[in-house]
Nucleic acid binder design. Structure first.
Length: 229
DNA sequence: AAATTACTCAACCGCGGGACT
DNA sequence: CAGTCCCGCGGTTGAGTAATT
């Protein structure tokens, strides 16, 4: 039996353009899947997981790059409220965006926890630990955003995001049509990743139940339907 | 101008689940 | 049923870069 695990021959780290070209050519010729053999057959000295990730997050057709639009930000916030950290599910609602990109965007731009408590000077040795400090604030709390982080370029964006969030809390209508079908805007979804209404709606309805049970939102929110589905 | 600090995001890791034998 | 393989997910890291001192 062959040992699984670390292969010191395998290359790690950032992909070079030449490696991208090899992987892209190989996958376009042979199709996706069986990533473990890709590195051998293509000549890439990369692990299967690395190849798969590079393809999925970067080389795959129809990947959208660049900053998130306001609509995408709004959608991420809303879906995260519903689904939590189920990034692949959230990314499935954002055409051209990957779960990794959504996760990164949330952690760096939308998650207030990651930007709180940075006012003290941290030594270089500890700087990486800073992000791991537990934070008692709930996700998306706005409690501390007025007393610091007022002097960088992201301020305007944060205000936009948080105002969207406040708007969301007022406008999201949990009595609206259940999210079981995408109705007439099917073009909203991936062409190459078909929407799966049954599984998706199970997850979403589960999220609805949780919200209903834990926070009793249905009594608090009312008004017009919003644009999730 | 150089050093330090902060931030971003591509990529890695470990784990769990499904398919197959 | 147990073992193995493969895939996909979410958490985390750290290199590269931008901003600040």
């Amino acid at each position: 039996m062959e040992m699984k695990g670390v292969n010191p021959q395998l290359k790690k780290g950032l992909w070079k353009p030449e490696e991208d070209r090899i992987l892209k050519n190989y996958v376009e010729a042979h199709g996706e899947g069986n990533w473990a053999s890709v590195s051998q057959k293509s000549g890439l000295m990369r692990g299967g997981k690395s190849c798969r990730l590079r393809w999925k997050n970067y080389l795959r057709p129809n990947i959208k790059r660049g900053g998130m639009s306001d609509e995408e930000k709004d959608l991420i916030i809303r879906l995260h409220k519903l689904l939590g950290n189920r990034w692949s599910l959230i990314a499935g609602r954002l055409p051209g965006r990957t779960d990794n990109e959504v996760k990164n965007y949330w952690n760096t731009h939308l998650n207030k926890r990651s930007s709180q408590g940075r006012t003290t000077t941290i030594s270089p040795k500890n700087k990486n630990k800073l992000r791991k400090l537990p934070n008692p604030q709930p996700i998306c709390s706005r409690s501390s955003e007025t007393n610091n982080e007022v002097s960088h370029a992201g301020k305007e964006e944060e205000l936009t995001v948080t105002s969207l969030w406040m708007q969301d809390m007022k406008s999201f209508n949990f009595d609206a049509e259940p999210p079981f079908l995408p109705a007439n805007n099917a073009s909203f979804f991936y062409d190459d990743e078909p929407f799966m209404p049954i599984f998706d709606s199970l997850a979403l309805s589960e999220a609805f139940y949780k919200i209903d049970e834990e926070e009793n939102y249905q009594q608090e929110v009312s008004g017009h339907a919003t644009v999730l589905w």
